[in-house]
């Protein structure tokens, strides 16, 4: 028996918005520690790794490990039927081929339930090596989204160059070039408003704007984003979901031929 109760269904709505354009379907691996998801986009260029801790749920019960293959488009349809502050419960029997999703309003005057068919998906899990990244940049997630959106008007690729002085985002294309440079914030009122850089070695890598913009769909989940980079390894873009867990996106760089 698997059962998880979340006090704000809006959190799961935002999570689905953050992954549905990269992944058509995904396996949700449930265990007593929580729910995990790891899946690559069709082109195998990016990977989504999500972890929701059991302790982040109002109630969480998972008697046996369960892998649920979910069509994300179907789940988005179901999630459209609830309000953000509805309480939701997801439930499945062991070896079930359906998942039940229930919504209740806070005053319990409206209850609804939906049953969704589960799928058998070929799981292709990748082993991601522990990496000590050369540069770890923490910045407001809205600022990162803004930069990706603005600069993708000019070119398909975004160069991210991180040095002690700051981080520079650059692109160029038919109409010209664009650069945005952020310095470490010296004073800020709230931690999430600042830009901080931990660096052991300068790094400069190039990434596809299209994927970066898709990762930015996670912006509503977190006020901060963490970018981790090392020379010639995939970029990690991480959004922490308050009390519940995190979503990490990995993106392979573009390299000079």
């Amino acid at each position: 028996m698997f059962e998880a109760r979340l006090l704000k269904s809006g959190q799961l709505k935002k999570i689905l918005e953050a992954i549905k354009e990269l992944l058509k379907e995904a396996t949700f691996d449930c265990s007593d520690s929580g729910i995990q998801l790891q899946a690559m986009d069709d082109a195998h260029v990016s990977l989504v790794s999500m972890c929701l801790k059991s302790t982040g749920f109002d109630k969480f019960r998972c008697d046996r490990n369960l892998s649920m293959g979910i069509n994300l488009e179907s789940m988005v349809k179901i999630m459209k039927c609830c309000s953000n502050d509805d309480i939701m419960t997801i439930k499945a029997q062991d070896n079930a081929d359906t998942l039940t999703i229930m919504f209740e309003t806070k005053n319990q005057e409206k209850m609804s339930d939906y049953e969704m068919k589960l799928m058998n998906l070929d799981q292709e899990h990748l082993g991601i090596p522990e990496t000590n990244y050369s540069c770890i940049i923490k910045m407001p997630s809205s600022e990162f989204a803004r930069i990706c959106r603005d600069l993708s008007q000019f070119g398909d690729s975004l160069v991210i160059a991180c040095t002690k002085e700051g981080v520079k985002f650059s692109t160029s294309g038919d109409i010209g070039s664009a650069n945005v440079k952020l310095s470490q914030t010296s004073t800020f009122d709230k931690e999430e408003e600042g830009v901080t850089i931990e660096m052991t070695q300068a790094v400069c890598l190039t990434f596809a704007c299209r994927y970066l913009n898709l990762f930015c769909k996670a912006t509503p989940l977190s006020t901060q984003v963490i970018l981790s980079m090392s020379g010639d390894v995939p970029l990690v873009v991480e959004y922490q979901i308050e009390e519940l867990g995190c979503i990490r996106y990995y993106l392979a760089p573009k390299i000079e031929e």
Partner: peptide
């Protein structure tokens, strides 16, 4: 000209 790498170049299948 830039080439897009895939994740398979970096991560192994489990």
């Amino acid at each position: 000209n830039m080439t897009q790498r895939t994740l398979m170049s970096y991560f192994n299948k489990k």
